Computed example of a mutant assay.
Amino acid sequence: MRAEPGQVVAGRYRVTDRPEDGTGVLAVDVHGGARVRLFGLELPELLVPGHPVGAPAPSYGPRVTARVAQVAAAAGRHPRLLRGLAAGPEDEVLWIAEEAVAGVPLERLAGNGPVSPYRVAEIGADLAGALRSLHEAGLTHGNLTLRTVLVCEDGAAMLGGLLLGAAEEELCAALGGEVPRRVYETRALMLGALAERWAIDPGAPADTWALGVLLYRLLTGHGPYPEDDLPTLLAAVRDGRHRPADGCGPLRPLVERLLRPDAAVRPDAAAVQRELRELLVFAPEPGLDGPPDPLLPVPRPVAGPLVPRQRGRRPARAARRETDRQLPVRPPRVPPRLLGPLVLGGVLLLLVAALAGIVAVAG
Results as ranks from 00 to 15, higher is better:
259 L>M: 03
306 L>G: 13
253 P>A: 05
296 L>Q: 08
254 L>K: 00
291 P>M: 03
212 G>P: 12
245 A>S: 15
303 A>P: 01
240 G>S: 11
275 E>D: 14
221 G>D: 09
239 D>G: 06
224 P>L: 08
239 D>A: 15
300 R>K: 12
232 T>K: 10
289 D>W: 10
283 A>S: 13
279 L>K: 08
225 Y>W: 14
244 P>G: 11
309 R>K: 08
216 Y>T: 10
229 D>A: 06
301 P>T: 06
274 R>L: 09
268 D>Q: 04
209 W>L: 00
209 W>D: 00
238 R>A: 15
266 R>K: 05
223 G>H: 03
288 L>S: 15
234 L>T: 05
296 L>F: 01
278 E>Y: 05
275 E>V: 02
218 L>N: 00
236 A>K: 03
236 A>Y: 10
298 V>P: 01
282 F>L: 12
235 A>T: 12
306 L>D: 11
240 G>I: 02
252 R>I: 02
263 A>E: 14
245 A>I: 14
266 R>I: 00
224 P>A: 04
237 V>L: 14
232 T>A: 13
284 P>L: 05
250 P>I: 06
292 P>C: 12
298 V>A: 14
269 A>C: 15
237 V>W: 01
235 A>I: 06
232 T>Q: 13
307 V>T: 14
242 H>R: 12
304 G>T: 09
263 A>V: 02
304 G>D: 04
216 Y>C: 07
282 F>M: 08
300 R>C: 15
256 E>D: 11
211 L>D: 01
229 D>E: 14
284 P>Q: 01
248 C>Q: 02
